[in-house]
Design a binder for these strands. Structure first.
Lengths: 345, 345
DNA sequence: CTGAAAGCGCTTACAG
DNA sequence: CTGAAAGCGCTTACAG
């Protein structure tokens, strides 16, 4: 019984229940048109035998793999961890499984790696995280293979390709407004890398908020960054040792904001008394550092759940039914998380 | 050509190469006994058609799924992220794929969730991370299903079940020795949760090092913790507001050490001048906080690679060949990472 | 060194 | 509401 490989098959269930395997299949797939008593009888046997349909057989016969792929680049990023968590849970609820693949955005054999995964596994859908979701090569490979995709926070929406995001522009505007409302006027901004879409969006929100207060972004207070701790620290070092120090710094992600905290600390500046600092992401570390960081929380797990649903439902749905393009692009609500790294000046 | 589902099959390759499908299969599986010219011809067609065998068909016919499962509990833990990274890379190199599943260690339907995954996917092997690798229910479910497992840093080795770990006792001893060599004598210790095996091992190493210096662990300087930031902060608060403050704190993981840093900061204590702090894990945050944390690095990615290899090679190997029990339990080398949170007193 | 046949465990048309 | 047949795309014995 418990030996490897000797598991019950659909034939065993059918025999035991006194029906054909087709009927067992119907019950298992929740197909309509099965008498309730028949259904109950089958289910009882399924339970007794602890029968579970074998995925490889279903996949081979039915053309669906019940596998969702998650493609990501930086495994240490808090964003990816939350995406994965949300996605595995929703997959389990829907009877799917999550296969993960870590890819380098600039790997020479990127195309091949994707082809290999797609052709071997035939996942029913693929979730792409930044910056892979903005990589034309990746998108082309997936499109050609016919694999349905959902893009998480892509740079720009692509017609016909579903996406889930928050409104980065608005969120950045809001957190800038928070600083402005605290009386800050000399607000520095540390940008993200130009190959990540969120970078431009967050800067845009920052600039918009300033202009609404009749302020212009000061070029001397704008520094480039690359979403890493070190780049944030270095940018902050420049900003804080300049002639006219800013009273607040908006680092466009949390990792860089942590770098700002470290630089301030080293320069003997007290946060938030001498300097207010805000980040973006609400990473795990944001709540753990001292002082805890004011930031923007993306509902990443919820975004991932939504992505899985779009893939699975879209797979089930009547393909002929036209989908409203607007329904393909979801924008979920973000949340301002005000902690102790900001203070009125 | 590029439409979904119209991919080439082994029959197409065989026809094009002028051989039987069996020969194509032999070439693809690196089976011996194929003439070189035949092999080359087949490979050429495979390349031209961009043929990849379909996993579900291989799995159904051959009984191997080319899937490795990763079971984990806390997705935010740095440990899990590194395990996953190391495992996906090695899987790809070996032609396997990684399926991830997040489980609650105390979920009432844990058994069912595992059964579902195992019966549906039939993974060729499973990697278990703490605390799941110490959960008898999990181990029993997997044993009964006949799924080969590798335990990552389990509490204790189980005969016949491969494991990979570092020597927690030794590592804790070494980092304690570092503090002792810096002149610290009043060293506090914050324990991990009792359901995680590393907790006891690290404490043992700590106590052993003290005793080697003719010191006895002082009960007043030993605090319980749960491997979380908050528990470390609270434990440190008690330790540091006591009558006789310790001059150093050994938090048995990094998350708790970050809590110690926060507590010290709040109490106006300068680390490392007033207090030395060490952690364990070398989490991503350990290098990012101020001051950067002295800690122990586990070669987690390497451990994960080794785990994948044991699973894949073990699967291939001649089952009749007896495996030396000692070869089943790998102990990889850790590394002391000395940063700025420690100073001589 | 190579191949024809059977079969893995399901689902998809197609009947009734 | 239910079933018998065919087939998904491979690998495993078994021959030669």
């Amino acid at each position: 019984m418990s030996a490897r490989g000797s598991n019950p098959t659909i034939v065993d269930v059918a025999r035991e229940a006194g029906v054909s395997i087709k009927t067992v299949s119907r019950v298992l797939n929740h197909e309509p048109g099965v008498h309730e008593s028949t259904r109950d009888a089958v289910l009882k046997v399924v339970e007794a035998l602890r029968y579970r349909p074998k995925q490889s057989a279903r996949s081979l016969a039915g053309g669906r793999s019940f596998l969702i792929g998650l493609l990501y680049y930086d495994p240490s990023a808090a964003f990816v961890g939350s995406v994965q968590q949300g996605a595995t849970v929703r997959c389990r609820e829907l009877g799917y499984h999550l296969v993960v693949e870590s890819l380098h955005n600039d790997a020479p054999d990127l195309r091949q790696q994707i082809d290999r995964m797609v052709m071997a596994l035939r996942p029913d859908g693929m979730i792409l995280t930044p910056p892979l979701c903005d990589n034309p090569e990746v998108l082309a490979a997936l499109r050609e293979s016919g694999t349905p995709c959902v893009l998480m926070s892509p740079e720009r929406d692509i017609h016909g390709v579903p996406s889930v995001r928050i409104d980065d522009v608005h969120a950045a505007e809001e957190i800038t407004n928070l600083l402005l409302s605290l009386g800050h006027r000399r607000i520095a901004f540390i940008k993200g890398p130009s190959d990540q879409s969120a970078s431009a969006a967050r800067y845009e929100g920052f600039a918009t908020a300033l202009r609404a207060h009749d302020l212009e972004p000061d070029p001397e207070l704008i520094q480039p960054g690359s979403f890493t701790f070190a780049s944030g620290r270095d940018a902050a070092h420049k900003l804080l040792s300049g002639r006219q120090r800013p009273t607040a710094v908006f680092a466009s992600n949390d990792d860089m904001a942590l770098g700002v905290l470290a630089a301030a600390h080293r320069l003997g500046l007290n946060v938030p008394n001498d300097l207010s600092v805000v980040g973006f992401d609400d990473s795990a570390a944001a709540a753990l550092v001292w002082p805890p960081l004011t930031t923007v929380r993306q509902p990443v797990a919820e975004m991932a759940r939504a992505a899985v649903e779009m893939l699975v439902i879209g797979n089930r749905a009547d393909q002929s039914a036209p989908v409203d393009e607007r329904d393909r692009h979801m924008v979920l609500a973000h949340e301002l998380v005000v902690r102790d790294s900001t203070r009125a000046r």
